[in-house]
């Protein structure tokens, strides 16, 4: 690939073979952005509670609605995924787990844990709701 400077250029995103480790990396950033937007829901919940019973009932009513529960479900998965993948990143930052087989295994663990924790939380959540 020519870049005008005769220096090697890494291949562009489009020509990479899709793999788990790469998908997880992208998903970590995507869930981070989603959770940043999701903080609006957290802020609404707390501010509504401080505003009084009527405002809090409205917020709780929205969270209990179909759309609210769908958003909360996505929020739960994003939170657990970002939490698990974040721990994996901290392990890397400490200098461990860079070998290919560990990176691959870590990816499966993160996905499994995020899905498992999401389902478990919703089973418990719906039972006590």
């Amino acid at each position: 690939m020519a870049n005008g400077s005769s220096r090697p250029l890494s291949p562009h995103l489009q020509v990479y073979r899709w793999q788990w480790t790469m998908a997880l990396s992208i998903l970590h950033r995507a869930t981070g952005i989603a959770l940043t937007v999701g903080t609006l829901l957290l802020a609404w919940w707390l501010i509504a509670a401080a505003a009084g019973p009527a405002a809090f009932a409205r917020a709780q009513g929205f969270i209990g609605s179909g759309l609210g529960m769908l958003m909360l479900f996505g929020w739960t998965f994003a939170l657990y995924y970002h939490l698990c993948a974040g721990i994996r990143h901290l392990v890397w930052d400490a200098g461990y787990g860079f070998e290919l087989q560990y990176a691959q295994r870590g990816a499966y663990i993160v996905i499994g844990a995020a899905v498992g924790l999401t389902i478990m939380s919703w089973i418990i959540g719906l039972a006590v709701w």
Binding site: P53, I63, V128
Partner: peptide, 10 residues
């Protein structure tokens, strides 16, 4: 949050 799903204001 799980402990306070659908909780009233009080």
């Amino acid at each position: 949050v799980i402990g306070h799903l659908g909780a009233d204001h009080a």
